[in-house]
Write a protein that binds this DNA or RNA. Structure first.
Length: 463
RNA sequence: UGCCGCAUAGCUCAGUCGGUAGAGCAGCUGACUGUUAAUCAGCGGGUCAUAGGUUCGAGUCCUAUUGCGGCAGCCA
């Protein structure tokens, strides 16, 4: 056996008459007098291969092993299908069963399992229609992300996953330590002093690669990261994970306008890539998960994003006549209900909001001339809310230092970040995009736990 | 972290006024010569999340705990 085999995806385009072998897992078997139909999947495409087993080809004992979940190789002939539903099928001449799956205990069935139940068997859910499709789209989008940036001369950079800088300010962090003992009572801290721990100081899992990506952009010009990120927030919602994948481009010689252009181009291109390359999967999502999916995605690809300043958005919300649970007022952050109304009701497609009050945004965002707002942008999308957050960065040393002091942040910790402004500072901008939220948007899946193979949330890190 | 909801067969669920457990699917046995969420007939399958309480009697009412989910905050 060799990895060079014909995937089931490729068998569908073969001429009838070809002698082939098909490897995969049995989805279902339907018996009729004289012949059996086996649906076989190898995950290479949404559609299953229909295998015809005529009476007498296999002995009764072998046929009985072809149950849902069993792993097999069928040998046979590609033939035109006489029935509707598929153009070609495999007429079996022989089979090898690699692994049986006891039907009495195999937990997957062909019908009606809830996503909540499937999360408990996350190691098997990939074999179902929905999760096979989710993971294929996830793969294609990953590829499209790299294509997008590489085609524009952006260099892929790897920022650290373990960091001793707790200064990003993007959220609660996981502590990293080797200072762990284990005895019959359980786990204990061996030494409470971080100075004697592995790194000689407290260390954490990264919450963002942005600050490090900025250093790399100040030398490589246009860069991007695409890697895992960790947030220890106790947030249990359908759109938060403790471990998620983030895409963070950073561009030298770029303003907020350029940043917005990149964000819009990016979303349109990768969504269009999925439309062109994951057709069967997206058809399934459109049929079974989110009935407006294809319409929405096509609309997003073909129409310009609405761009509003924060101040304009506040005015629109104040005049909306809507009875919001939380009041709208300049200077406070928009609530989920406000963002949803803007993007879902008012505009009906993605909205980019810019120039937020400096008090509700991070220290590194570039201050506007008015002294009140900063060059920040959020891209809001219907169904999922905030999908991108970005800004033009403050490149002026004095302004940045003043802001750090104003916010009471430890200036010493930012010595290397401030060096970027001391030596060859450049106007620059970037954004962060949660990859799982992008997948939710493209697939229509409602819960972020269902677009990553193994999800981590407060209280759950199984598998 | 706060608020709300849910927990009954392997899965998805019903269970009326508090009166002693039901269906579909899955599984098993069989029928059927083209099925594709196959169909048809039959069979087996339950500590009603856990622990207390109220009651003659609790799946049903009350309390606590655990698990899961939704929303909010935080954000991506």
């Amino acid at each position: 056996m060799d990895y060079r085999r014909t995937y089931i995806r490729d068998l569908f385009s073969m001429e009838p008459g070809n002698e082939v072998s098909a490897f995969g897992w049995v989805k279902t078997r339907r018996d009729s007098k004289g012949l059996s139909f086996v649906q076989l999947s190898d995950g290479s495409t949404f559609n299953d291969l229909q295998v015809i087993v005529e009476a007498g080809v296999l002995d009764e004992a072998t046929l009985k092993k072809l149950t849902t979940g069993a792993c097999v190789r069928f040998d046979g002939l590609i033939v035109e299908s006489p029935a509707a539903g598929q153009a070609v099928e495999l007429k079996a001449s022989g089979v090898e069963v690699f692994g049986e799956a006891d039907p009495a205990t195999y937990p997957l069935q062909k019908k009606g399992a809830s996503f909540e139940f499937l999360r408990e068997i996350a190691h098997l859910r990939v074999r179902g229609n929905t999760f096979g499709a989710v993971y294929r789209v996830r793969n294609r989008l990953s590829y499209a992300v790299h294509n997008f940036f590489q085609a524009r001369g952006f260099q892929y950079v790897h920022t650290p996953i373990v960091t001793t800088s707790d200064a990003e300010g993007a959220g609660a962090m996981f502590y990293v330590s080797t200072n762990l003992g284990h005895d019959e009572k359980g786990y204990t801290l061996k030494n409470p002093n971080p100075a004697e721990d592995f790194f000689g100081k407290p260390a954490f899992l990264t919450v963002s690669g942005q600050l490090e990506a900025e250093t790399l952009a100040m030398g490589l010009t246009n860069v991007y990261t695409f890697g895992p990120t960790f947030r220890a927030e106790n947030s249990s919602t359908s759109r938060h994970l403790a471990e998620f994948w983030m895409i963070e481009p950073e561009m030298a010689f770029c303003s907020l306008e350029g940043d917005m252009n990149l964000a819009e181009e990016f979303l349109k291109e990768v969504i269009n890539d999925a439309l062109e390359n994951c057709g069967a999967d997206l058809d399934f999502f459109n049929k079974r998960i989110e009935p407006t999916l294809l319409e929405t995605l096509t609309h997003v690809v073909n129409s310009p994003f609405e761009r509003l300043t924060y101040t304009e958005a506040i005015k629109i919300l104040e005049n909306s006549g809507e009875n919001f649970e939380y009041p709208v007022a300049w200077g406070t952050d928009l609530q989920s209900e406000h963002e949803r109304w803007l993007t879902e009701v008012k505009v009906g497609r993605p909205v980019i909001l810019t120039d937020y009050p400096k008090e509700i945004k991070a220290f590194y965002m570039r201050q506007n001339e008015d002294g009140k707002t900063v060059r920040a942008m959020d891209v809001l999308a219907p169904r999922i809310g905030e999908i991108i957050g970005g800004s033009q960065r403050e490149e002026r040393l004095d302004v940045l230092e003043a802001r750090i002091e104003e916010m009471g942040l430890p200036k010493e910790a930012y010595w290397w970040y401030l060096d970027l402004r001391r030596f060859g500072s450049a106007p620059h901008a970037g954004f962060g995009l949660g990859f799982e939220r992008l997948i939710m948007y493209v697939t229509g899946m409602k819960n972020i736990r269902d677009v990553i193979p193994y999800y981590r949330v407060p209280g759950n890190a199984d598998f």
